[in-house]
Structures are given as structure tokens and as C-alpha cells.
Amino acid sequence: MKRLTPYLLALPGWMWLAIFLVVPMAAMASVSLQTGNAIDGFAMTFSVSNYTDALSRYSTQLVRSLAYGGAATLAMLLIGYPVAYWIAFKGGHRKSMYLFLLLLPFFVSFVLRTISWGFLLADDGILFGTLKGWGLLPADFHVLATAFAVIAGLTYNWLPFMILPIYVALERVDPRVVEAAQDLYASRTAAFRRVVLPLSLPGVFAGVLMTFVPATADPVNAQVLGGTSNTMIGNIIQTTYLTNLQYPTASALSFTLMAVLLVGIFVYARVLGTENVLEAAAR
């Protein structure tokens, strides 16, 4: 009995995973190989062509999603790292307040926040409209419905998920280790490059994972900020499923996206050397 206790304690977790992850995935895998339509019903035909058709029709959007997701992740890293660094090392006793401020936007719905950005960035909205009124911007200047708007929206929405893991990693860096590097003739820059940066890599690794995946799959930002020419794969899946009711195609697309992301993560982990990263993190 004693030996079984840990497994029994883990049982609710396993059941959760089974019911809410494994079963739906299996169902979706099955749907992705079926043919038919919403009125007459779908039947299993093991039609692999669902995948090849979806891929050839929507490869542009898939590649665009990866590009936007990647660009947004890079932007989040460039903005988020200094913020995390500043809170961890210069935050003093106000650290928790800064972290709270970082999470404050989450008290408002994600979609609402994105729509407000739509208002803010509108061609004749309070920002650009005013600037155009003053003659500081040309009349045909616009941000909305560009790739920039979508990437900026993605960056804004997931930035905290980049900052928090990096903050946690930096927070755990012993300041005396940094002093030791300086004592051993390292300049501030060298101490950062040789000691602080490597020790924070586990946080960067986690941050990239936590932001790249949802940003690539997100339909909301492209829909609200991107206009018609910046459609991402998330939008395609959404309309295929909810509007066109082509469940097999939508499922096949979802699996394709998942496979691409998993391969991407795997390559990324190999390149960055998770072994090393996790080992440093284990301390």
C-alpha cells in the first residue's frame, strides 16, 4: 500500500491528462482522417490527403505564422530581458510591486486588450489622428492592418510570459558570484556575458517556449490588428472549423501546426543544449 501511495496521489493528475488531453487528441486525430460534410456526416476513410491538401492550400499562412511568432518572440526577448534584469537586480524592496504591475493587464480580457490596441492604432484614432491633425505624420500613414501591428500585438500580449521565467532565473543568481567574476578581473560586461547570461539561460529557454508557441498559434491579434492580408494559421483553423464546418481539414491543420511546433522546439532544445541549460538551472 505504502508503495502505491505516490501513484494514487498522482492519479487525479493522470486522469485529468487522460480525459482532457489524450481523449480529445485521439478524437481529433480520428476526425483529421475522415471525409464527408457537416450535413451528411463524416466517415472514417483514412484519408491522408486531408493533410496534404491542407498543407498545400495554407502553407503561406503557416510560414507567416512561424515568421510572426518568431519575430514577436525575438522582440519579447529583447524587451523582456532588460526588464527582468532590472527588476531582479535593481528592484530592491519594490520587486513584488513591479511584478504585480507586470501582471496587472491580465485583469482585463485578452481580446478586449487587443481590441483597445485596435482603437489606439486606428488610422484616425486618438494617437495617429491627433498627430496627423498636427501635420506631424503624412495623411496616408497607417499601422493597423500591417505585419508590424500583428507582431506588436503578439509581443504586447505575451511579454509577461517572457519576463517572468527570466526574472525567476536572474533572481536566483547569487550577487556574490557576480562580484567574484569582477574580483577575477572581469569588467561589468564580461561578468554579464560569462556569468549572469549563462546562468539566466534556463529562464530564457522557458520564456521562449512559453511565448513562441501561443504567439504562433494565436488567431486574435491577426484578426483584430492584421486586416485581411496578415491572416495566420490560427485564423484559418478557426474559420475552417467554426464557419466552414470542415472538421477534418481543421483537425489536420491543427495537427500539422502542432507537429511543426514540436519539431521546432526539439531542434531549439538541441541547439541550445538543454542538458547544459537544465544543469545550470538545477542549482
Binding site: D174, R176, A180, D183, L184, V195, A280
Partner: peptide, 20 residues
């Protein structure tokens, strides 16, 4: 003079070895 330009070295109380 900053510590990295001083010809003295320190052994820290908690050793402060580079964990990585």
C-alpha cells in the same frame, strides 16, 4: 579603482563558485 583592476583576489564566505 574598481575590483577588476585591483591586484587582490578574494575567497568568499559562501565560496561564490561559478555553478555553470
Amino acid at each position: 579603482v574598481p575590483p577588476n583592476k585591483r591586484d587582490v583576489n578574494m575567497v568568499f564566505q559562501s565560496y561564490a563558485l561559478f555553478p555553470h
